[in-house]
Design a protein around this nucleic acid. Sequence first.
DNA 1: AATATGAACAACCGCACACGC
DNA 2: GGCGTGTGCGGTTGTTCATAT
Length: 331
Amino acid sequence: MGRAPCCDKENVKRGPWSPEEDAKLKDYIEAFGTGNNWIALPQKIGLKRCGKSCRLRWLNYLRPNIKHGGFSEEEDNIICSLYISIGSRWSIIAAQLPGRTDNDIKNYWNTKLKKKLLGKRKNFNMNSPSASSSQDTKLADPADDNSLSNSAMERLQLHMQLQNLQNPFSVFSNPAVWPKLNPLQEKMMQTLQSFNDNSNPLFQPMTIPQPGQGQYDQLYEPKLDQIISTGFEVQDSYVVQKSDGQQSNLGVQSASTFQPELDEFMNNNNAVGMGEFDCFKEIEGSRDSMMWWPNDQFDTNSASSNSWDSASTPHQSDQVYQDFALRYNVY
DNA sequence: AATATGAACAACCGCACACGC
DNA sequence: GGCGTGTGCGGTTGTTCATAT
């Protein structure tokens, strides 16, 4: 038996909200709050809307202090840095940008930032006749012009590097077969390599305690809560400013280390000499075949799914934490 | 001027988690 | 512990507007 629908779809209005509906919802919530029950709310105020729709409208549009459009360069950089680090965790990224919603950031990324970052697909298709013969390309559908990566290609490089560090027998352990990197990515790799010693916890993911273990509960869970909570904002240096005024350095080296290059990159400054990304040609379309996680964390039964598909992860919140822990010095 | 195409944004959908019973 | 329900989230679709042909 499937799950009961959250509302009677036949009798709820859909589509764009009218000013009158907005006013009703806004006035009520400002006066009485949501009552922790979105499903019942539309009935209370006489709106023929689904509760989920009301919630979305409030959170993304009507809520006070919401900013729309006009993303600053600084916000661009934060979004890009965090996307490279944690992927499409839009709610977490949004928590770093006061006044921005996850939906807004997601749309902004999909329509503008991604293109700004990766360049136009058509251009590098035209410029890379060899791409169709690369060994990885056969894994993609070359006719699928929408196969522009859903995750930043920079992330792919970082994950490949992690694969190498954790599985020396992996194909990714052979630099000779790696895609050619652009200068920014090369610097990322060099920096990551420099961390590759036993003293750096960044590359000891297998030592991370699991939920339920004392060390996890005492050290990691509270830290994760702290990271995910909205009570802080990111400074330029990625030092976390908590709501109580205290600062906590999360050590986001993978982001801050590359900030100058990222700034330059985002400004479309070609001083670093990358008009097109050779590595993107090489690995274009190979994302579906990539294992983004260490082998022992990857469910081979769902190998076709991407790394963010919860079906491939044993427990989403645990995976969120491990994702953070892999990239941030959360110790 | 009419039509096609693309960009931007709003809204919806379905899944998974949290939580109370 | 199992079940039902509300909520949060990310992916996707729909709509509108701008620009190109």
